[in-house]
Design a protein around this nucleic acid. Structure first.
Lengths: 132, 132
DNA sequence: TAGGTGTCACAAGTGCCATAGTACACCTGT
DNA sequence: ACAGGTGTACTATGGCACTTGTGACACCTA
C-alpha cells in the first residue's frame, strides 16, 4: 500500500528516516508527480508510528517543496521546483564529511566517485516503472 | 597550540564536531603520524569544553585507530591501518544520503563528483606543510 | 450529515548530551 | 621519593530532542 519501507536505524530520528525513504521513493520513480501521498493516519498505521510523528513527516516534505497540500483532500507529490542557484553550497558540509570518512577508510577519490555513480544510477534506473 | 579549530554547528554533538575537526587536521597534514595529540585537559581548555567530553573525543579517535595511547605519556597520531577490505559498504548509507539530497537540489551527478574532487584536493594540497 | 483529510496544542515518558566533581593507575621529570 | 602530567572510570545533574498519547479544530467530499 505504502510505496516504501524502512529498515530501523538506531540513533537517527524515525521521522527523518521516513522522510528519507519517501524522498528515495520519489527520485526512484515509485512516487511520481501527481500521485497521492499516504495520509497522515494511513502512513502512521503502515509505518507503525504515531500519527503525530507521521504529521511531522508530511510537514517536512511539504516544506521541502516535494508535497503539495490540498486542504480537506490530502497531499499530492509535485515536481521539485528545481531551484538550484548556487545551492551547491548547501551540500558542502555533507561532501566534506563523506570525503573525510572515505579518506579514513583508505578509499581513493575515483572509487568514491564510482560508488556515487553506482548509487545514482541504481536509483534512476527504476524511473519508468509505474506499472508496478 | 591546538592544530585545529571548529565552527559551532547547532544540532550536532560537540564531541563529534571535535572528532571531525581532528580527522580533517590529520588528513590535511596538520597532524602527521608521530605527532603528539593534545592531552585531554589541554584539549578541553582550548576547545572550551568539559574534560569529560574531551576524553570521549580521544576515546573515539583511538577506537577508529587514528590515535595510539602511551599510558602515562599521552596519545600519538598513528598512520591509519589502511584496512579497506570491501569497506566501501560502510559508506553506503552516507553515499545514498548525499545522492538523494543532491537529486533534491537538482544537481547533476557530474557536478556532485566535481564538488567531491574539489573538496578532496582542498584537503590534500596542504599535505607537505610541516614547517610550522 | 458522516467520514476522511491536514493542522495544532498540551502533557508525559524516554534517551542522549554536556557539564560537574572525584578518584585511580600510569609514567616522567627533578 | 616526590610532584606533576597523562589517560581512564564512575556517579550525578540539568537540558534538550524525540516519540508517544490524547484531544480538538477547520476543511472537503460523498
Amino acid at each position: 500500500m505504502v510505496p516504501f519501507r524502512l529498515i530501523p536505524q538506531p540513533g537517527v530520528p524515525v521521522a527523518d528516516q521516513v522522510v528519507f525513504a519517501a524522498k528515495k521513493a520519489m527520485f526512484s520513480g515509485k512516487l511520481r508527480p501527481g500521485d497521492a501521498f499516504p495520509s497522515v493516519r494511513t502512513l502512521a498505521g503502515a509505518m507503525k508510528i504515531h500519527a503525530n510523528t507521521a504529521q511531522k513527516v508530511i510537514a517536512q516534505l511539504t516544506a521541502d517543496g516535494l508535497l503539495e497540500v490540498r486542504p480537506g483532500i490530502g497531499t499530492v507529490v509535485v515536481h521539485p521546483p528545481a531551484a538550484r542557484a548556487g545551492r551547491g553550497r548547501l551540500l558542502a558540509r555533507d561532501v566534506e564529511q563523506l570525503t573525510v570518512q572515505a579518506m579514513q577508510l583508505g578509499i581513493t577519490l575515483e572509487e568514491l566517485q564510482g560508488s556515487l555513480a553506482e548509487c545514482w544510477r541504481g536509483l534512476q534506473k527504476e524511473d519508468g516503472h509505474h506499472e508496478r
